[in-house]
């Protein structure tokens, strides 16, 4: 098994599709994780940030306190949980963060914007594989107030900036009518300080690229027309986002982190259990969800590919 397979957070636990709030409480609370792809993915993130900064980083002024809180939280967590890779030293208000993996040192004074070259969230995000989003818990709702987003699955940070949580999620089919999203929002507003919840969200992508922003959809979106039964194993990837919601204790805002993992189908089908669960989940996917996830265009080719793999490996459907 490759490193990717070993680390891959396989999302399916049941044999049929069910959309629910399948969150688990993390003990200890963590906001980020370091995988074996750390160096290449962080470099990719930084390239994207350098080339398309406006697309990848946005923040409203109100988010500044929470941004500083996130910066310190992430650096403290990295140095505490991965001390072999990261160190954080403090002298009064002055901090020095050492990233041993990249051989870099960041020195800054806490809450002194003149001591750093980019905004605090932007700096924090340049040392982790995750996309980092700050949701402000305001008196009139939960709003997306800042984000560093390099690896989105077909959405635009600029479009959702300043939007209310509920409104961001209205295009997900089937979730407005049963007030599902209101339940999720209420769940988020009741997350306790210093606690983190994790859920896995999956989709399928026709590229091995992590960066599939809506802004370049006209380039990569058309690849979905190219899937055939013969090339699905190479072309199609199961994309899983490990999403974490962390209640920032001081500002009371929410840090939403997204760590994205990709697994080509050729690797997925080498695990019998995964193959069967993936097959049954895609098979039972309601049409509107398949449309939303962009699978409908090539679902037939995908199913044929998976059925052939099941037959080859003598697994009952």
């Amino acid at each position: 098994m490759s490193n990717s397979s070993k680390e891959f957070p396989f999302p399916f636990t049941k044999d049929s599709y069910a959309y629910s709030n399948n969150s688990i409480l993390l003990d200890p609370a963590r906001s980020v994780a370091v995988s074996s792809h750390y160096i290449e993915e962080v470099k990719l993130k930084r390239n994207l940030l350098n080339q398309n900064h406006e697309r990848c980083f946005r923040a409203l002024p109100l988010s500044l306190e929470a941004q500083w809180e996130v910066l310190l939280l992430v650096f403290k967590e990295l140095s505490t949980c991965e001390p072999q890779y990261f160190t954080l030293e403090q002298r009064g208000n002055a901090y020095q963060f050492t990233n041993h993996l990249l051989r870099e040192v960041e020195s800054f004074s806490f809450k002194d914007s003149s001591s750093i070259e980019v905004e605090p969230l932007d700096l924090a995000g340049r040392h982790v594989q995750e996309d980092l989003i700050i949701m402000g818990d305001r008196h009139d709702g939960l709003f997306l107030e800042a984000g560093q987003l390099c690896f989105p699955s077909n959405w635009s940070l600029t479009f959702v900036l300043g939007m209310e949580f509920k409104a961001i999620h209205t295009p997900v089919p089937g979730i407005t009518d049963n007030r599902f999203i209101e339940k999720v929002e209420r769940f988020i507003t009741r997350i306790r300080p210093n606690s983190a919840w994790e859920r896995k969200n999956w989709s399928v992508t026709i590229t091995n690229k992590l960066d599939t922003p809506l802004e370049t959809y006209s380039d990569w979106g058309k690849l979905r027309y190219n899937v055939t039964e013969a090339n699905a194993g190479e072309l199609v990837n199961l994309r899983v986002e490990v999403q974490r919601l962390y209640r920032l204790p001081v500002t009371n805002d929410i840090l939403f982190s997204i760590h994205t993992y990709l697994l080509p189908l050729n690797e997925l089908i080498s695990n019998d259990e995964w193959l069967k669960k993936f097959y049954t989940n895609v098979k039972t996917l309601p049409k509107e969800i398949a449309d939303y996830k962009g699978i409908s265009l090539y679902k037939r080719e995908l199913m044929t590919f998976l059925e052939r793999a099941l037959t080859q490996r003598k697994i009952e459907r």
Partner: peptide, 14 residues
């Protein structure tokens, strides 16, 4: 019945 937190927080098992 769907469920998640089993602590009365997430509302899944309503």
């Amino acid at each position: 019945i769907p469920y998640a937190c089993r602590m009365g927080i997430c509302g899944s098992c309503e």
